[in-house]
Design a protein around this nucleic acid. Structure first.
Lengths: 158, 158
DNA sequence: GCCAGATAGTTTCACATGCAACTATTTTGC
DNA sequence: GCAAAATAGTTGCATGTGAAACTATCTGGC
């Protein structure tokens, strides 16, 4: 009879690990700034990219449902952490960018989150971390998870 | 100015990967058997362990909230996939076990899920898989995620 | 033996999220 | 140039989940 040890089953382990890591990390911005995970993803995308982005773009590259992004954007606008400008070329679309306040928050948050990430990986050697990242990359690629705006467009064109 | 590429940020990558893997996998039992993830976790625990388990035990070793497990158990009982027997030693607790029907479903499901897991890891060499599992184990251990019934009890005793 | 606190399990509540329908706009095919 | 299809974004709805309150039972201190 086939048996399966849940604790050694990769999908379960990933799910459990991701949940734990996410909880540990999000406490950093939820408690202190009242920002939730979708809002953080919007800020992270806008802070990293140079130019303003559309909600659609953020949705695609964070792989977060567009309604979730829409609600996160609404909240961030209300708190004046981001602002949006109409796009003359396409009036369905808005360009989103960080406000000065949003940029300050972003710059305050990033070093702390990067430190937390390093803390969580501190149980690994430098080589192990590299290998782990590489392996994750292979799995992501095989599941077609590596989504850039270019690929998103290419896909849509299919 | 510190920047953070979400696509290279481990917490985000784990979250995205876990979600994708979970969706890909759960279609195997959701569509065909109408079983959701918490229900699957209950079945997997009961099928793997020899003896009947309490809901509490399942909750701890799957790290799933007890109310979620409670609801999954209710549903599984309704569908006669598991049964519960009163525990004479402690009448607050019920011992849960698979019914014949539940065992059949379990035995049908396991090989298919294991095959899916292997498919998802097929992009890795044997050595890479081993290393990946080892690395996950280290991170889990450092986050104190490796929960056995013994550890759970030891913790509770603190 | 009894009472306070712990524990197993259930249920209520609040809330986050995905889906689908919707509006407004743009693009495509003819 | 116009109708049909596609797209950006919003919103209503259904559902799943965690926190907390609750019931029933057990345990430990005295």
């Amino acid at each position: 009879m086939a048996r399966l040890d849940l604790l050694k089953f990769m999908p379960f382990r990933l799910s459990r690990l991701a949940a734990e890591v996410s909880t540990a990390l999000s406490s950093e911005y939820i408690e202190q700034y009242g920002i939730d995970v979708p809002q953080w993803r919007v800020l992270a995308t806008l802070g990293f990219r140079e130019e303003p982005c559309s909600a659609q773009f953020i949705s695609q590259c964070t792989r977060t449902h567009k309604s979730t992004i829409s609600r996160a954007v609404t909240e961030l606008l209300k708190n004046k952490l981001i602002e949006r400008v109409a796009n003359a070329d396409d009036r369905r679309e808005f360009r989103l960018q960080l406000t000065a306040k949003g940029t300050r928050l972003y710059e305050e948050l990033i070093p702390r989150l990067l430190r937390r990430e390093q803390d969580m990986l501190s149980c690994l050697s430098v080589q192990e971390r590299k290998d782990f990242a590489t392996t994750l990359g292979k799995i992501e690629a095989s599941l077609d998870l590596v989504q850039t705006s270019q690929q998103a467009k290419a896909k849509a064109a299919y």
